[in-house]
Simulated assay, not measured.
Amino acid sequence: MPSEQFWAIVPAAGTGSRMQTDKPKQYLLLQQQTVLMHTLNRLLSHPQISGLVIAIAKDDPWWSSLEIPADWPLLIAEGGQQRSDSVLNALDRLADEQVGDPWVLVHDAARPCLRHADIDHMIHSLATDEVGGILAMPITDTVKRATMDGRVAETVPREALWRAATPQMFRLQQLRQALSQAIAAGINVTDEASAMEYLGYQPKLIAGHADNIKITLPQDLPLAELFLQQQGGSNL
């Protein structure tokens, strides 16, 4: 394994409106801790993660109430209007630290069940890759395309279809360039890979565990709690 630095980036400026709660989903409680604290701990407790940059909304009233360990190598960037803006701000913040051109693993704030084994798999699979890649899961369900009035238009072949997840791992400077150009061109950047694809890169797909869910709807919270219980403290 090459001697490399690996930094985590967590965009955490979203409002999570689909959760229908009085606070963003990353600040909801999960096993007596916020979802965000679970996520940060999963990343920063990994031995190969050098540090983490989190993008927080400028008017966020909840962040200051978290008990962040003093020894966490944590940098703060200002969140943007869109996820892509927050990630770019975090990359700029990291570049200001003059850390060179490390790998960055961008991870959703609302994915608290990430396993260390999946981080290991990504690092071992991508550390010598020229592009980088994303954690993803092959689609196993039958996939339907809908009409405008909610009827089945066709069945889409699921072969070679994957469900994108995070972390998404790319070089700092390449991702920074890709996001900057995609945003300037008005491209709908739904994840970091789509920005890289805009520049013509083909990120590699790395199969991850299905329990790395993103908390989006109210029913996702008890499911995440079940997964954390199943994983236990040592099964990361």
Rank of each mutant, 00 (worst) to 15 (best):
V156T: 11
Q219P: 14
M19A: 13
P102V: 06
L161Y: 10
Q81G: 09
Q82M: 13
R151F: 14
T142H: 12
R158M: 09
A160R: 04
W62S: 02
A109D: 12
A109G: 09
Y27E: 09
E225S: 12
G14Y: 05
A178C: 10
S17F: 08
A185R: 08
L161R: 13
D191V: 01
A193Y: 04
D92S: 10
L52S: 04
G51I: 07
E159R: 10
I119A: 07
M137G: 03
P203K: 01
Q20N: 15
T147H: 08
L179N: 03
V99K: 10
L91H: 02
R163I: 00
H209F: 01
D129P: 10
E225P: 05
D120V: 04
L135W: 01
M137C: 06
A195G: 09
A109K: 01
T140D: 15
A77M: 04
Q5C: 13
D118E: 09
E197M: 14
R158H: 12
C113R: 00
Q229S: 13
L161F: 14
T190D: 15
A110K: 07
Y198L: 00
R176I: 02
L135A: 09
Q5N: 14
V106G: 02
Q174G: 03
L175Q: 06
L217N: 15
S50T: 11
V131G: 12
W103M: 05
L91M: 09
G133I: 00
V156N: 14
Q202F: 10
L30Q: 06
Y27N: 09
R111F: 04
G133T: 03
Y198R: 00
S45H: 13
P157V: 02
D85H: 15
W103Q: 04
P222T: 00
Q32H: 14
S3L: 12
I76E: 14
L175F: 01
S45Y: 11
H209S: 02
G51P: 06
A77E: 07
G132S: 08
A182T: 00
V35R: 01
N188D: 15
Y27I: 02
A57Y: 06
G186D: 12
